[in-house]
Design a protein around this nucleic acid. Structure first.
Lengths: 143, 143
DNA sequence: TTAAAGATTTGTTATCATTACAATTTTCGG
DNA sequence: CCGAAAATTGTAATGATAACAAATCTTTAA
């Protein structure tokens, strides 16, 4: 699971001009090690046991800072909650309406606005909604 | 601005099995006549003068119903507020970070999940974020 | 080393979109 | 015209996020 060392995380933070506090290291490491597109609350819940003094406000502040420094990406796939992704390269997401999990889809070429519009996209979100294979299988069993 | 008659709106509602109350006609007509991807609150604010007894809950209920009946589409382009669109055909959206307006982009072919994933998208959202031509022009003037 | 300045974290409170809910009003079949 | 079902309404609840000020930690300069 630990696909990145604490060293590397600290280096990335410093490289972006973010002083590497324990809390920031914890949040950023969590995202590096858990590619589950978590919400701020999920991050808070999962880190709390190991960082008992951690505040939810700090999680929100840290996430906002990491987004501003382009170290992570916001995934606005569902209203009412933001999700976060360490992978800042363009890729699409598929959200299953049953298990609510989000699946990364990488083999999609980066999209641009139609040329005649002259619009330049600074970022792009491509979201698919449906039912994943596992959940589809379960439903077919029952019928 | 009135690009559709009340008659047509009523027909569409009935056709989808929605009884055409005054409030539902008002909300659906507003969306037909104002392609501004409004939020529930905007719809409520704009209709209130003409429908003084209208309740915001009714606006939310109606929007949810129209979405369920596939008469309108949800545009989840920004967290914290849902927007609504009478155009249920696939098209992309561009949100300007300055004026916050949403521009429709039609000349984009409908996207599918990569074949090898076996995933089938029931709906798709393609959102671009950047700065529109007007706002870009204003910024260049000042510098 | 030390003290002030600055940065960071924290807990509480506020905000805002949306939903839940129960009461009231409207609609419609008999 | 009456009563059941549907629709609407207002209020209260929820839940994610932001604002804010106090507390703590870190850094810098004397």
């Amino acid at each position: 699971m630990a696909d990145i060392t604490k060293q590397k995380v600290v280096e990335q933070l410093k490289g972006a001009g973010v002083s590497p506090s324990e809390q920031r290291i914890a949040v950023f490491s969590f995202l590096h090690q858990n590619h589950i597109h978590p919400t701020a609350d999920t991050i808070y819940q999962r880190l709390s046991p190991d960082y008992p003094t951690l505040s939810k406000t700090t999680v929100y502040n840290t996430l906002k800072l990491l987004v501003a420094k382009c170290l992570i990406q916001v995934v606005a796939i569902e209203d009412g909650e933001l999700r976060f992704d360490v992978n800042t390269d363009f890729h699409a997401h598929f959200k299953c309406r049953e298990c609510l999990e989000i699946i990364d889809l990488f083999d999609i070429p980066e999209l641009q606005c139609p040329m005649e519009t002259q619009l330049i996209a600074e970022s792009t979100q491509l979201n698919f909604y449906g039912i994943c294979d596992q959940c589809k299988g379960k439903q077919e069993e029952q019928s």
